[in-house]
Design a protein around this nucleic acid. Structure first.
Lengths: 300, 300
DNA sequence: AGACAGTATTTCAAATAATGAAATTGCAAT
DNA sequence: ATTGCAATTTCATTATTTGAAATACTGTCT
């Protein structure tokens, strides 16, 4: 663990806060710059990056050149740097890895177990997309599919109707805040208690809106309710004005390994809540049936 | 331009092939590793990266640690590294930059001109998505929207029907091979000759299938035909078995600044070609009408 | 059960590449 | 033309990265 025992007479690190080991610092800086640019819609000039990250302008210049040459950023004629074409290219590759069915059986196991990449089976999201599509079509709201990935809830597919507004800040590959949305809550509700324990130990229940459940005991109660009623509701817990409904999808062995949801303006909940719930439950049942059809052969 | 005049007694660069200037080499290596991992579906171990890139295993170890800490890669329990959650996060940010209408008036100008980021107007793809949606719905084939970005044709929206197969290797943000697909050809066909000249000077007409147009004169003829008939056809020029139809979208000033297309199995071309063409032309006309409605106010 | 084989991780001094202050260049507005 | 501001370039200094080798780890085969 790189004890750094040999007492150099030099100052250990220029900025004492970052005492990470086994990290290439210049590379880390370059990645930090990339992230900063991603956070700034209009792009940033060399100088702006230098000021914001407290780095020498020369360093930023060289870092940006490196990113530019590799296509990770692009230089507008104004001198502003924005994200470049390499980003969607990498994302395409990332989505292709979703293409492989991950085992995701018992969440606790799958989290630690090898995510052994199976052969070129159609992915879960590919198989279930027609179901999401008709759910979205009928409800005229965006439909979502989520599953487990390394112990986190990951959004794996979105199907939007013609005039849709998906929840801002949500995208395919999004993980986290499982306590604050319907998909996460329903997946947790059907997980073994030991896994929920572990999940709660690893995460803080961050408050995102007034209604986010941030009390551990309240969340556990909520999970019990969900497991009992068979679906979950997010009443503006993730995003103000938006509500979600989610229901579990079971594999051939009956284990919950994914969830289907829709999102909609929260004021629709009182008027259309029951009907929407029925639609989501129906889609989830269809999905489970689809997975029951051709079980992935265990030993071939 | 870094003349490197001072004659060091050291060897200039360890690997003589990469003689890039103003580049941070360790950062460049880290980005190269990321790209390699993106190209490898099942992921790579430290050792594999080391062998493939001819780098010391220790270097790869540290580089991967850097990427891992920043979330660009993930370590499977097997020791294989795959792309991590930071990739879709950055992609989400990239797509948001598409959200801003880029000027893209005259391709040649817009390519060099400042892509001044306007206020939070709904993006082109947002405004035209309902049109793409109904095109996809009617034709039961994937629908596409493309526009100019820094002198390149960029795919900006895809709407897929329930049972769709988009062209493999195509994704939102994809640029390039404009000579080989219907969207690119139609956009080039309506560009000023000087810009086409410039485009051809900057690109090689790479052969992607047997039918790709790789002859400069043939392509120019094709562009003339397209401009005359008002739409373009890709007959397995980008991808075998797949055909595309594209038509131009005009802004309020009547300039072609985007294109709408659909893709389908090429054997449908003879049977349904005419009907599909009519659908695409109709969608493109609707799109132009939509843009005519609320012209972006020039000085507000 | 034990040894083996193949990897991953750690070590540490040498060698190199990154840094940062300052000079220079480029551009746009006056 | 002149000025002012920001982007590049320079180059010596210094910290960081590298790479060979030692060590720890993991799973497999006999």
């Amino acid at each position: 663990m790189a004890k750094r025992s040999h007492a150099h007479h030099q100052i250990q690190t220029s900025s004492p806060s970052e005492s990470k080991r086994d990290i290439l610092r210049s590379a880390q800086r370059v990645l930090a710059i990339l992230e900063l640019i991603a956070r700034t819609p209009g792009g940033l000039t060399v100088r702006a990056v230098s000021k914001l990250l407290q780095l020498n302008i020369s360093t930023c210049y060289h870092s940006l050149n490196t990113l530019l040459t590799a296509g990770y950023v692009e230089r507008l004629p104004s001198g502003h740097y924005v994200l470049g074409p390499q980003i969607p290219y990498l994302n395409d590759a990332y989505l292709r890895t979703l293409t492989y069915d991950w085992p995701a059986t018992d969440p606790q196991e799958s989290w630690r177990a090898v995510a052994r990449v199976p052969a070129h089976q159609p992915s879960l999201s590919q198989r279930l997309r027609p179901i999401l599509h008709s759910l979205s079509e009928r409800s005229q709201e965006p439909a979502y599919l989520a599953g487990w990935r390394y112990g986190e809830v990951e959004l794996q597919a979105i199907v939007e109707p013609a005039h849709a507004e998906r929840i801002p800040g949500i995208y395919i590959g999004y993980r986290g805040h499982a306590h604050a949305h319907a998909l996460g809550k329903v997946l947790l509700a059907y997980s073994p208690p030991a896994f929920v324990e572990d999940y709660l130990a690893r995460h803080t229940l961050i408050r995102l809106t007034q209604r986010t459940i941030v009390e551990r005991t309240l969340l556990c109660e909520e999970l019990h309710t969900i497991a009992h009623q068979g679906y979950s509701i997010d009443r503006e817990e993730l995003h103000a004005d938006t509500a979600c409904l989610a229901a579990p999808v079971r594999d051939a062995q009956g284990r919950v390994m994914a969830a289907i949801a829709i999102s909609f303006r929260s004021d629709l909940l009182s008027r259309r809540g029951e009907w929407l719930t029925a639609q989501v439950l129906r889609a989830a049942r269809q999905a489970s049936a689809e997975l029951r059809l051709s079980r992935p052969c265990e030993q071939c």
